[in-house]
């Protein structure tokens, strides 16, 4: 489903050039659960952002199915994200001024889904992660675990082909972290493709494939025996 060919990402600031990604080649098949690991600054998040099209590679090809995403313009990429991707972040990134239900619904609005359809999807997504009772609350009224589950509901409400999770358990205690991992695992079991950045070896073990990165390169790609 996904193919990265010779992807490079360089940042140039004043006199310093930093290479965040160097010659990344990666293939991810539909239905896979991939964990990306590596020390801080190795390029994990850059890789995830590139996969999520919120960061553009400096060079290389990014094929999603048979589309080359590098060739798309801003508006086409925005449409692509709305239709295809779901994001989960370490710091949840819920919008403070919107209720949980509204946060979950927001992505559907950008897809211009019809109103009745949206309501049903939002209800289902919140139900799926167990935050329905918090629908009318604002993010700051929820615990960290609840906020992250709401963020997952937002990520899955549009039934995306790909879910990108950037240290989704990083800000959570063990119990809440486990709950989030359980949700991701079951989503994957139902067929969702998931790519997750994590520092936790145990959470990485849940994924079917683990990619290790160092200094902007993939140094190992290990498939877990099932």
């Amino acid at each position: 489903m996904i193919r990265l060919e010779n992807i490079q990402r360089r940042y140039v600031s004043d006199d310093v050039e930093t290479t965040a990604l160097a010659d990344i080649n990666l293939e991810v098949a539909a239905g896979e659960f991939v964990a990306i690991m590596g020390p801080s600054g190795c390029g994990k998040s850059t890789l995830l952002n590139t996969l999520g099209t919120v960061d553009r590679p400096t060079a290389g090809r990014y094929l999603f199915g048979d589309r080359d995403l590098v060739a798309l313009n801003e508006a086409e990429l925005a449409r692509f994200r709305a239709m295809t991707l779901g994001f989960v972040f370490q710091s949840f990134n819920l919008i403070d001024e919107l209720t949980i239900a509204e946060n979950v619904e927001l992505g559907l609005i950008y897809r211009q889904d019809s109103g009745g359809d949206r309501k049903a999807r939002v209800a289902a997504a919140m139900d799926r992660v167990g935050v329905s009772h918090r629908a009318r609350h604002f993010p700051h009224q929820l615990s960290g675990g609840q906020q992250q589950r709401a963020a997952i509901a937002r990520a899955i409400v549009g039934e995306p082909k790909l879910i990108l999770a950037d240290e989704p358990t990083g800000n959570l205690d063990t119990e809440n972290g486990q709950q989030v991992m359980d949700i991701l695992t079951s989503l994957n079991a139902e067929g969702a493709t998931i790519i997750m950045v994590t520092h936790s070896p145990s959470h990485a073990d849940i994924a079917r494939r683990r990619i290790n990165m160092l200094d902007g390169r993939i140094v190992a790609s290990l498939a877990r025996a099932i």
Binding site: G52, V54, E74, A75, A78, R79, F80, R81, A82, M83, L85, F87, N93, L94, I95, L106, G107, Y110, R111, R154
Partner: peptide, 9 residues
């Protein structure tokens, strides 16, 4: 976040 969710410029 809005951008990530698909809002265009």
């Amino acid at each position: 976040m809005r951008k990530v969710l698909g809002a265009s410029r």
